[in-house]
Nucleic acid binder design. Structure first.
Length: 568
RNA sequence: GGGGCAUUAGCUCAGUUGGAUAGAGCACUGGUCUCCGGAACCAGAGGUCACAGGUUCGAAUCCUGUAUGUCCCA
């Protein structure tokens, strides 16, 4: 989506300097303070080509700019050429666009006819849905919404960890300590206990390790009993995952776990061999990556155990064949970055010219302030479900205190409590580790999820009290000239660009940041001006602004995967 | 040992890809309400952008080295 105001500036400058409009657009920036203008052209870059001092260029260019339309004033300030946008144009164009398009505002069509595959969440079967899966799940889901808003066909893939030696260990454990036949009634909690217990046992009696391996071979060979027990574990796990996904309101277009690619690995190995990429080393078949300063990619190990590298390669091939994606995003922990660098390098060696379409969207890890990490083997896991319930419970308490007579309280408590968790995760940029601190996550004051939802609910309340039709037509936008209102409009106008940025950088935090900014200016406006005033025309104009705020907040929250309750 | 990522206010984080006086929230101190939702708003205080060099008109941002944290690799 093109910003008509930026376009206008770019064209005018381009005309005056013979610089391509694209280059001008790239140079434009926003001045640090609003009094200085709305957009600025730094003239340093021009100084070299024009062989003139930047401040002189700014002065000369200022004289050549036409004002009166979208641009109201052009002012040279030192080496900067500062543009002031016409408030009237800006307000009218932005608000009309939002009032017209409603929830469609900010969406784009760059992705029409293209597919983006997003691999996210991927919890492990027979293990609890721990809080360490939160990030991938929430970031991936937000990206799914964002790309969809730009017109892409999005395929969200849940690449479940449903294959591996841990199942053999579980089967072994059940055979030792389980009662009767293993059925899908078994809880994850129970499976986890078995898993922890067998691990302790193996430490004492290493011979159990061999037994487990034997079971795993049976499983891989398709042994009836082994496969049946494996299937039970998968089924039992799904029950728990579904519960969490329902709470988060997240879905997938494709659920294809590791087991799905079991039979697709030989073909990949054959191709590697054919292309002469495999070499032998210590009994294993590897792809040598020394030329790229990386350890070898292990395609096949000496003990013929399964390898997730080869499996990932098989998954990649399958996805390319199936979807012909424009992009394939792996929303995976930063700890896996070497693995993906190797994987993509192998792709290149295999002459897959679509290698550049594959991206590891990495993110930092959750750190716990009290030092307690999360290790499944030792059993000290923080369950995501517990975290969500705790947030919901706190929300209930706050609501009982602030708004005890609300209808539909239970649903709202869920929307807000879960929203707080999601927002806390998406609030800072992906690459950073997140310091998870209960006091901070459950503090709903300041720039938080509940703050954004509150602002939305507050304005919904204003709109409920407004008697006229929504959105109001026949609005005199001139009446919105106060600085507080103009600041809101400027923020609203940035929404489309920000969605684009979030997609380009795979960074949902771009949306979060804009939401907070919008709430700050919106609340400032609320505090400074009475929306429902005695004057009909003024009220209509302000209601139009409020309606636009509400619309964009609701859209933004939806992109983040959060609910926008009308009361809370 | 080799490599990746990070380091900005007491804490948690922004910083528009090299530009103008480095910004928010939490916590702290003080203030705003006869009025549409106080989960709000305003103000104050809080900084050697880890450290040292380099690149240039100009560096929190780029390059080199060092330190610290964290993860990965046999």
């Amino acid at each position: 989506m093109i910003n008509p105001f930026v376009e206008e500036i770019a064209l005018q400058v381009s005309h005056a300097t013979n610089m391509p409009a694209d280059e001008v657009r790239a140079l434009l920036e926003t001045p640090p303070r609003p009094e200085m203008g709305d957009r600025a052209l730094p003239c340093f870059a021009l100084a070299k080509t024009l062989r003139k001092a930047p401040h002189l260029i700014a002065r000369e260019l200022a004289a050549q700019m036409a004002t009166g339309g979208r641009i109201s004033e052009v002012r040279p300030t030192g080496p900067y050429l500062n543009f002031f946008l016409s408030k009237t144009h800006l307000i009218a164009e932005t608000l009309w666009a939002i009032l017209d398009q409603g929830a469609e505002y900010g969406r784009g069509d760059e992705g029409v006819g293209k597919t983006v595959v997003i691999d996210f969440s991927h919890p492990n079967i027979a293990k609890p849905f721990g809080i360490h899966h939160l990030r991938s799940t929430v970031i991936g889901n937000a990206l799914r919404n964002i790309y969809r808003a730009l017109g892409y066909k999005v395929v969200g893939v849940n690449h479940l960890g449903d294959w591996g030696a841990q199942f053999a260990k579980l089967i072994l454990a059940w055979n030792y300590w389980g009662e009767g036949e293993l059925t899908a009634d078994i809880t994850i909690q129970k499976l986890l206990e078995l898993y922890v217990r067998i691990h302790e046992e193996i430490e004492d009696k290493p011979e159990l390790e061999r037994e487990a391996r034997a079971w795993f071979r049976r499983l891989e060979a398709g042994d009836e009993e082994a496969v049946r027990m494996w299937r039970v574990c998968v089924e039992a796990s799904f029950k728990e995952f579904d519960r969490v996904y329902k709470m988060l309101d997240i879905g997938f277009e494709s659920i294809a776990g590791e087991s799905f690619y079991q039979d697709k690995m030989p073909a990949v190995l054959a191709q590697l061999r054919e292309q002469g990429l495999l070499t032998q080393s210590e009994g294993a078949s590897i792809v040598d990556l020394e030329a790229w300063d990386m350890p070898p990619f292990i395609a096949l190990r000496s003990d013929d155990a399964t390898l997730y590298g080869t499996r990932d390669l098989a998954a990649l091939m399958y996805r390319w064949k199936t979807y012909r994606f424009e992009k394939l995003l792996y929303v995976v922990d930063v700890a896996q970055s070497l693995h993906f660098r190797q994987l993509f390098q192998v792709l290149e060696l295999m002459k897959c010219d679509w290698r550049e379409k594959c991206v590891h969207v990495q993110f930092g890890r959750l750190r716990f302030k009290d030092g307690g990490g999360a290790s499944t083997r030792r059993g000290n896991v923080i369950f995501l479900e517990d975290v969500l319930h705790r947030a919901i419970e706190l929300t209930r308490q706050i609501m009982a205190d602030k708004n005890p007579d609300l209808p539909n309280r239970e649903q709202i408590a869920r929307d807000v409590g879960i929203g707080a968790i999601i927002f806390a995760d998406l609030d800072s940029k992906r690459v950073r580790d997140i310091a998870f601190d209960w006091d901070e996550v459950l503090n709903f004051n300041g720039e938080t999820g509940p703050y954004v939802q509150y602002t939305h609910a507050r304005y919904c309340s204003v709109l409920r009290r407004y008697a006229g039709p929504l959105p109001p037509r026949d609005v005199n936008f001139e009446l919105l000239n106060e600085t507080e209102a103009v600041e809101v409009v400027k923020c609203l106008a940035r929404f489309p660009d920000q969605i684009q940025k979030a997609a380009d950088e795979y960074e949902p935090a771009a949306i979060t940041a804009l939401m907070v900014e919008l709430c700050v200016v919106a609340n400032r406006f609320y505090n400074a001006h009475q929306v429902l005033s005695g004057r009909a025309d003024l009220t209509a104009a302000r209601v139009a602004l409020v309606y636009a705020i509400k619309t964009v907040l609701a859209s933004g929250l939806a992109l983040l995967g959060m609910k926008a309750p009308e009361q809370m």
